[in-house]
């Protein structure tokens, strides 16, 4: 009986995840195209709604024949690590107070850890078939991005944790019953969303023609299942990061009662994703380890530490007085 309900739950969650990814990929394409005064996919299905499906199937059909060749095997292991931890991170996040997969006491830090580990899966994708050394530069860039920007991501998430005095996501959302965290700690929110944006690499499934670093693409010779797994894990990660941002700073499923709580979560997540997309197309990519360290460790981390100090002061001295 328990097993059956667990299986059903898993099925529903994975269905939600797949549908969510499909819709976000399609909408990203369309919104991006309309931002750039284009039409986007148009002739495949109604307004190009089947374009993503056809591209996904294309990658499946194009799987390499020598799948178990040692070089490919390493990349496949990396892809599997990437997608498993991405799904694990997503399953830790509750959608509403009732709809959740699992309730762990330290769900927030665990979730962020899983996202970072899933990003490290791409480290294994070293590919020497083309002998184009530029590709390794792209890979090094990816590694430095992941390592450098995971620090401010973690520190900025500690602000809401201190305010709710719990690592549990339910408790954090419950603490925002009256006012959302964005009012108390806007600094932390800004740091969190900026790091989400910078961690997002946007692999080639969605808009390959506009891939800005065609020549420094570290997955440039990857095809088939490996590439599909990498890009899907990327999308799951951005979905779960924006879900985390809604839970931490925008009150999660709290909202006026005329709508079901899950709809509030979905609406807030969607608005955040569109914001990310808009910023992504306007600001340039940050390249070079020195610039990254300057931005992340010197600027973003110190800002979030300042925020943390303020929150600790408020919790220790002001909270008992004003009964927040």
């Amino acid at each position: 009986m328990i097993l059956k309900s667990l299986l059903l739950k898993t099925f529903y969650f994975l269905l939600f995840l797949l549908l969510g990814i499909y819709v976000t990929v399609y909408l990203h394409k369309k919104i991006l195209a309309h931002m750039q005064s284009r039409r986007g996919p148009l002739h495949t299905g109604f307004h190009g709604i089947l374009q993503t499906l056809s591209q996904t199937l294309k990658l499946l059909l194009k799987s390499p024949k020598n799948f178990l060749k040692s070089q490919n095997l390493v990349i496949t292991i990396g892809a599997i690590i990437s997608i498993t931890f991405a799904i694990a991170a997503f399953l830790l996040i509750p959608l509403t107070g009732e709809i959740f997969f699992i309730n762990v006491e330290i769900s927030l830090p665990l979730c962020i850890c899983f996202i970072v580990i899933s990003n490290t899966g791409t480290f294994l994708s070293i590919d020497r078939t083309g002998l184009n050394t530029n590709k390794i530069l792209g890979l090094l860039d990816r590694i430095s991005t992941t390592i450098v920007f995971s620090v401010p991501l973690f520190i900025s998430s500690l602000g809401p944790v201190t305010f709710a005095s719990s690592f549990n996501l339910f408790e954090i959302v419950k603490s925002q019953g009256r006012f959302y965290n964005i009012i108390y700690q806007p600094l932390s929110m800004i740091v969190f969303s900026v790091t989400c944006l910078l961690l997002w690499q946007r692999l080639s499934l969605d808009v390959p023609s506009k891939n800005t670093y065609l020549n420094i693409d570290y997955l440039s010779t990857q095809t088939g299942l490996n590439l599909l797994m990498f890009s899907i894990s990327e999308y799951i990660n951005i979905l779960s990061l924006s879900l985390l941002a809604t839970l931490l700073f925008f009150g999660g499923w709290n909202g006026p009662g005329f709508l079901h709580p899950i709809i509030w979560t979905i609406i807030k997540t969607f608005i955040l994703q569109v914001m990310f997309l808009f910023l992504y197309t306007v600001i340039p990519k940050i390249k070079g380890i020195k610039r990254k360290i300057n931005i992340s460790l010197a600027f973003l981390s110190s800002l979030s530490l300042l925020n943390l100090l303020i929150v600790i002061f408020v919790v220790l001295y002001l909270k008992p007085i004003f009964n927040l």
Binding site: K29, G40, P41, Q51, S54, Q55, P208, S209, L214, S220
Partner: peptide
């Protein structure tokens, strides 16, 4: 992109 034409690397 209307017809699903992509330029790959």
């Amino acid at each position: 992109e209307r017809w699903g034409i992509n330029f790959v690397s």
